[in-house]
């Protein structure tokens, strides 16, 4: 069994999992299950990045998306009131339109994807060293500004939450 065949099998499994879980996010009635299906989609995307040879992005995908973003979404779900089922109905009425638009969008995407002759655009293995070199060399200033952005997000959340608390008490 050659690796190309195995790679194709893995790609097929991951693709089916991504599309299936993505559809489940929209179709599942319970919003917590939808959030967990979304986490599963993120995890399968990490597998796709591994297949492409981008281990760093795969690791970041797991840490940021499967870890952080999913936690934020789940917290957001737990903050929402339960009775908001009308939104689900609102979206499900648009299924025919969604099918039309997806079909319309699929044509250019497939044309673009099939224009790639070589299926392996990236070098295999770690790409962490060039990333680190440019991040701490050329992009040192944006890197420091990123921490200010994170600080702003944290302070903003604290300010909003503390105000809510004082209203409750």
């Amino acid at each position: 069994m050659t690796f190309d065949f195995l790679e194709m099998v893995l790609f097929a499994i991951l693709a089916i999992a991504i599309v299936g879980a993505g559809a489940a996010v929209v179709l599942v009635g319970r919003i917590t299950s939808a959030a967990l299906f979304m986490a599963f989609t993120f995890l399968c995307m990490a597998g796709m990045f591994l297949l492409l040879g981008a281990e760093t992005i795969a690791a970041f995908q797991v840490l940021i998306y499967v870890g952080a973003i999913t936690v934020l979404i789940l917290y957001g779900v737990m903050f929402t009131p339960q009775g908001s089922r009308d939104y689900g109905l609102f979206f499900q009425k648009q299924t025919p339109w969604a099918i039309v638009f997806v079909a319309f969008l699929a044509v250019p995407v497939m044309v673009f994807a099939s224009s790639f002759q070589d299926g392996r655009p990236l070098a295999r293995g770690g790409d962490l060293v060039p990333l680190a070199t440019s991040l701490f060399g050329d992009f040192a200033y944006p890197f420091e500004v990123a921490s200010v952005l994170l600080l702003a997000a944290l302070v903003g959340a604290i300010v909003l939450v503390k105000r809510d608390d004082e209203e409750i008490r």
Partner: peptide, 15 residues
Amino acid sequence: RYPTHFYVFALLFVV
């Protein structure tokens, strides 16, 4: 519904 002040813990984790 969770009290909103737990959101700080989520955001601390993200940061």
